[in-house]
Amino acid sequence: MTTGIEDRPITADLCRGLAELERTERGWLPHRLPARARAQSTDPQLAAAEAQPSGVRLAFRTRATVVELELLRTRTVLAGVPERPDGTVDLTIGGRLVAQSGTSGGDVVRVDTTTGQAEFERGAPATVRFDGLSGRDEELEIWLPFHERTEIVALRTDAPVTPLPVGRRRVWLHHGSSISQGSNAASPSTTWPAVAAALGGVEVTNLGLAGSAMLDPFTARTMRDTPADAISVKIGINLVNADVMRARAFGPAVHGFLDTIRDGHPDAPLLVVGPLYCPIHEDTPGPGAFDPSALGRGAVRFVATGDPAAASRGSLTLSVIRDQLGDLVAARMAEDPNLHYLDGHDLYGPNDSADHPLPDALHPDAATHLLIGERFAQVAFAPGGPLAGP
């Protein structure tokens, strides 16, 4: 250990963008859903996603020239599916990205996709280090990886740290799918919600849950109980690619989800966002699946396996959802002046697919995350926008 560096206590007031900080056997685990919500689902996909700390960061003032963060990551490896790149930890100072470090080591969960059986391999924590900092009194934020379960084992600096005060900026609470969580983004501070928050001058609490934006009541209750000045909900893609719902259930489920949010935030600006353009699911229901021919080439790509004709029998497609969601929100807006709707095509639409194709047919790439974040900020946070401050 470098001379002068000392351990600093890991406390909840050092963290932003999480629901709870759980003490584990080996460190501190940030959760984006509270324990009561986690107890109401046995889905391993959701359990993995909510413990992947998208948008979670340590935020403090310090005069440190060296910051070390010891992390224990858990990676999930699916048999026959190419592994994701190592996670990235971002350091921002005064809101500006100044340094990045890759993750390493940690535990591995290997899943046999044919049987569902999993094997656990225990690993060791690893340290990311940021040095050469100015030593001036500055605001630092350390953004944790968005697609790796991450336990914080230790924080070490060569100067004291002071948590940033709560309430210095408006809080934007967002819920969506893996695209909102950050799939295929370059790093945690460059997911589209992080980009939009930086441009909009707000603090993001990201409830983007990969594969798990299902209109779950416990997620709505979490949003109801989470302090927020502005709220958005992106609805659609997971309902289609998981094939969990029919048109008859969709409308009432959306109403119930929005009603629950309104129970805790009756007057907050609330923006409902329709699904982004996704050619495989525009007119074809789910379920979605890995494209076996792409896997044979060592690539990840998704396909829709449903029957397009089933949409006339109540199966959901993105086109069906856009039509129903737009009408539903328009009807509610008559009694809710702080409710707004944004067509997902305004963030990423058919005209974007030539210049910004979805590399796996489902998720935007890193450059497109930046584009979507910029567009969202221009629409939502610009003066007069639905989520703009007073």
Score class of each variant (00 low, 15 high):
M1N: 02
P9W: 01
A12W: 05
R23K: 14
R26M: 05
L29K: 04
A35W: 13
R36W: 08
Q45W: 06
Q52P: 14
A59K: 03
F60D: 05
E70G: 08
E70M: 02
L71I: 02
R75A: 03
V77Q: 11
R84E: 11
P85Q: 02
G87H: 00
T88I: 08
D90G: 06
L91C: 04
T92K: 06
I93S: 12
G105L: 04
D107K: 06
T113V: 10
R122L: 11
G123R: 00
A124H: 11
P125T: 08
A126E: 15
G135Y: 14
D137R: 03
D137A: 05
H147D: 09
E148V: 01
L155K: 06
L155W: 05
G167R: 04
I179D: 06
S189I: 00
T190C: 00
V195R: 00
R221V: 11
P227A: 15
A228Y: 05
S232V: 07
S232A: 07
V233G: 09
V244E: 09
M245E: 09
A253G: 04
H255R: 13
R262N: 15
P266H: 12
P266C: 13
P269T: 01
C278D: 07
E282P: 12
T284S: 12
R297S: 15
A299S: 11
V303N: 04
R313P: 06
S315L: 04
Q324P: 00
D327I: 08
E335L: 13
N338R: 15
Y341D: 02
D346Q: 11
H356D: 12
D360G: 13
A361F: 12
H369C: 07
H369I: 08
L371P: 03
A382D: 13
L387N: 03
L387W: 04
